[in-house]
Nucleic acid binder design. Structure first.
Lengths: 344, 344
DNA sequence: TTGTAAGCGTTATCAA
DNA sequence: TTGATAACGCTTACAA
């Protein structure tokens, strides 16, 4: 009984005693099909366990109903939530998600993107590892497939984007720390070759200025992802004669690294150092003390990106790039304010 | 200059002044091609920016060089690491990963699996949300595509598997606690409708017996993923007259939930309760105190699963199901043993 | 309302 | 060593 090859349209047609065109019409809910024929064909499909061949269909129609999502660092705490946002939105539109991990390597990233394009994904959602890479920028410029960038800014590339309003959260963070009396505030954030690194640094400097706080040189550090440096960085910061009394860990991947450094060096939070981290995750929420964080609706990042793509693929395509901005907010917790029992 | 449609074999052939068959041979490094022709064709491909159409190729060859990875809970801390293990292994073999998230819903899971099969993935790696579901089991039985199960046990399904040796870690955990003088040990783990839930419960009971410890009823609780119950469960445990002095949180998704409950209830670790959690993640390592954990090589789970699949797809296919077992080890940290300064 | 047949971009078989 | 040509499984004019 075991059929070796999966049944095709032809087999169903033969079984039902109709032409393959008719079967195709039934499958695609096409017009001009008698109810009698429809039920007969449906029965045959069931009987044979027919499953449509998506590849053949795509070859014919030019649409794959797939979206590629490429991220530099799949172990980022944000990744899963963004992916869920994308996936949920896509599923409801009948699209399937294709995942690509570039391991932070731009060359590899380029390879993955190329692979996805060969599979003719209908769209691409990208969180590039390095938006400044010339080869990557050249390659992206040629891409005809709709693109959505996640908090990235590729010079000269016209495409939809979902951006994070880092300034909002960083402003609130600096204001909060200033209000608590901190004047020497340090920042450790990601490298400036992706937008978050630049946006956060810029926003931080601007905020200091606005609060008339000194922008002490050396109090801003930019890190490569998964850098082992936080310990060294933090050690250097803590040993300065004008040691900062507060630190902002600017980036979801930066946060665990900084926390490890904090533990290794025995720095007490918030007594020795007030700490504001990025993103409301298990790591920040379950920390002792719970961390004050700059938070954002991570799920929405994915959902909005998917929506942008679906919009562009739809009939209401529209022209011109669209940009969606996700706000950030400050959630105050114990890492910046001592608990009552500790104060008393 | 902007070509609307991507160039195909035909265009390259015309540009190079050869037949499409020759171009195809060049692309596939086929035999019987003059160097002169090869360079000429290669030049044409470059000039036109030719990219092979993976779908058309797959339709012809019957191979997609894609693997589907379906997981019940994409926000599990294990997911990313497993995916990296799979991806790294696949990449080197020229395969691309297709991601499917079922959100813990079996019906949705079935849909996702069907989608992937329609896209003709060459293999499927599954971490099912509920291995006991009859509809799912029936569907899987019909699948001709190679399958690899991740720590799941579907009755009657013959396929390769990567299993976790939970007994090893749980034994070590119970032995460790017993050695510290604990006699009333509780377990909170995942539901028994997936293998980890059953394996962990069974191993736990067996370990208690081996250590001649009482298997007090009510000290074992099984939870649905993302259940809000841990607080209630833990509260109930802590209020018992014979309250346990130690708790094992059996499952990577269980751990954060239990920690939240611990914090909410103000239970002190390890003074009020010794705690052993699952998996060496940021959450467990950065906790205060750092958690004693049952750990496993999570990356290897993915890597081995991918390897099983590649082996089965290769010429050396072999027959009979293969099972790879990943060991678990106990990493002792502060959540079961007080730090010196706290003791002194 | 249904059937016939062309073609989507490849690979692979056969001749030349 | 190369070229014509038939599939792969499907959708879609166009014919009937």
């Amino acid at each position: 009984m075991a059929r070796t090859a999966k049944p095709g349209l032809k087999d169903v047609a033969a079984h039902a005693g109709v032409s393959i065109a008719t079967v195709s019409r039934v499958i695609n809910a096409g017009p001009y099909v008698t109810d009698a024929v429809r039920t007969k064909v449906t029965a045959s499909m069931q009987a044979l366990g027919y499953e449509p061949h998506a590849l053949a269909r795509s070859l014919r129609t030019g649409q794959t109903h797939t979206i590629g999502y490429v991220i530099g660092d799949i172990s980022s705490p944000l990744f899963a939530t963004i992916a869920r946002g994308i996936d949920d939105t896509l599923q409801s539109a009948g699209f399937t998600l294709f995942l690509g991990n570039s391991c932070g390597n731009t060359q590899h990233e380029l390879h993955v993107i190329k692979q996805l394009l060969r599979r003719r994904v209908d769209g691409l959602i990208l969180a590039l590892a390095d938006e400044t890479d010339p080869a990557l920028r050249r390659a992206l410029a040629d891409v005809q497939t709709p693109l959505v960038l996640l908090d990235r800014d590729v010079a000269g590339l016209k495409c939809d984007r979902v951006l994070i309003d880092h300034a909002q959260g960083i402003n609130a963070a600096v204001a909060h720390l200033h209000a608590l009396g901190h004047t020497r505030i340090a920042l450790i954030t990601v490298a400036p070759n992706i937008r978050p690194g630049r946006a956060i640094s810029t926003a931080f400097s601007a905020a200091l200025q606005r609060h008339r706080l000194p922008a002490t040189p050396g109090l801003i550090a930019a890190l490569a992802p998964h850098s082992p440096q936080p310990t060294a960085n933090l050690a250097a910061l803590v040993q300065r004669p004008d040691r900062p009394t507060a630190l902002i860990a600017g980036g979801a991947t930066i946060t665990p690294a900084v926390l490890r450094a904090v533990h290794e060096l025995g720095v007490r939070i918030p007594q020795d150092l007030a700490l504001i981290a990025y993103d409301d995750t298990d790591v920040t929420a379950l920390h002792s003390p719970p961390l004050t964080v700059v938070a954002r609706d991570v799920y929405a990042i994915g959902a909005q990106a998917a929506r942008l793509l679906l919009d562009r693929l739809g009939a209401n395509a529209g022209t011109g790039r669209k940009t969606i901005t996700i706000p950030t907010t400050l959630i105050v917790r114990g890492s910046t304010v001592r608990k009552l029992e500790e104060v008393g």
